[in-house]
């Protein structure tokens, strides 16, 4: 597994922010998708971004990673402004976007290799890391299959592998566990935990509160394009479980009897 090498980079100081999102905002037509989101992802943290569907998680992460130009605000990766010095910032980041296609007429192996070569890495390193990544994600036997023929979970894994190939210092993962089987998900969690232990930083978005509570040390709750709460997981959840706290913050639980006809007796 490629791991971030901190000793080569004297600038990296413990405690400084791996990703600093400052007042990002985006409007699509009449709809304000993200309304001034500010977040600090400390270096070496495992940061969870949770929110209901359509809360603006993907839009926020796209703007933070240089995929979508914000209307307002700034995003800094280890102090590098993503929109002022995009090439430098993108070198530091590994990105797993959600809901985008892949170059799926390549085989899994070719796709990861392609991602490495696009990053300007040399052939030997790419080949070595591609092999490691395919093994780590249990895709070795499907390495020569076209990605278009992969299942949803395998597609997610190969996209994640493409995001890791250049050993980034920050991983931005949008819904990394969606449709991934439990065994692979556990493997991915181990990989990410190791990565964080070695000094890397991760920000993941997810719907699965349980997962975030177990896996992450920091969390931000976002709804309707605004941050409702942010901090360490223990700060945010207080005495309750993260899920209860989330529902309390976001609201929207139906307390009425609901579908009274949906009964079998």
């Amino acid at each position: 597994m490629p791991l971030p090498s901190d000793e080569n980079n004297p600038e990296a100081r413990a405690g400084s922010a791996a990703l600093s999102i400052r007042g990002l905002a985006k409007r699509f037509g009449e709809k304000i998708a993200v309304n001034g989101v500010t977040l600090e992802v400390p270096q070496g943290s495992f940061y969870g971004l949770v929110g209901p569907n359509g809360a603006g998680k993907t839009t926020t992460l796209s703007m933070a990673t240089g995929l979508l130009r914000p209307d307002f605000g700034q995003a800094l990766v280890h102090g590098v402004d993503v929109w002022a010095r995009p090439l430098e910032a993108k070198k530091l980041m590994g990105i797993l976007p959600d809901g985008v296609r892949l170059f799926d007429r390549l085989t899994g192996e070719q796709l990861v290799t392609y991602a490495g070569l696009l990053r300007g890495m040399d052939r030997e390193t790419v080949a070595e890391r591609t092999g490691d990544l395919l093994r780590a994600f249990d895709l070795t036997n499907d390495a020569g299959t076209l990605v278009v023929d992969y299942s949803a979970g395998m597609t997610k894994k190969i996209a994640l592998a493409s995001a890791l190939i250049h050993a980034p210092k920050l991983l931005v993962l949008d819904e990394p566990f969606e449709s991934v089987d439990p065994v692979s998900a556990a493997n991915i969690r181990d990989i990410l935990a190791n990565y964080v232990q070695s000094g890397g930083s991760v920000i993941v978005s997810s719907h699965v509160m349980d997962l975030v509570q177990r896996m992450c040390d920091h969390v931000a709750v976002i709804a309707a394009g605004t941050v409702l709460a942010a901090g360490t997981v223990d700060e945010v959840r207080g005495d309750a479980t993260l899920e209860d706290r989330f529902v309390e913050l976001v609201g929207g639980r139906n307390t009425s009897d609901g579908l009274s006809w949906l009964r079998t007796s």
Partner: peptide, 20 residues
Amino acid sequence: KRAGGNLGFLGRFPATPAGA
């Protein structure tokens, strides 16, 4: 299922972003 090992054109062109 097919195992890897065949990089196709990716193995034959220069290992630069443009080549990729």
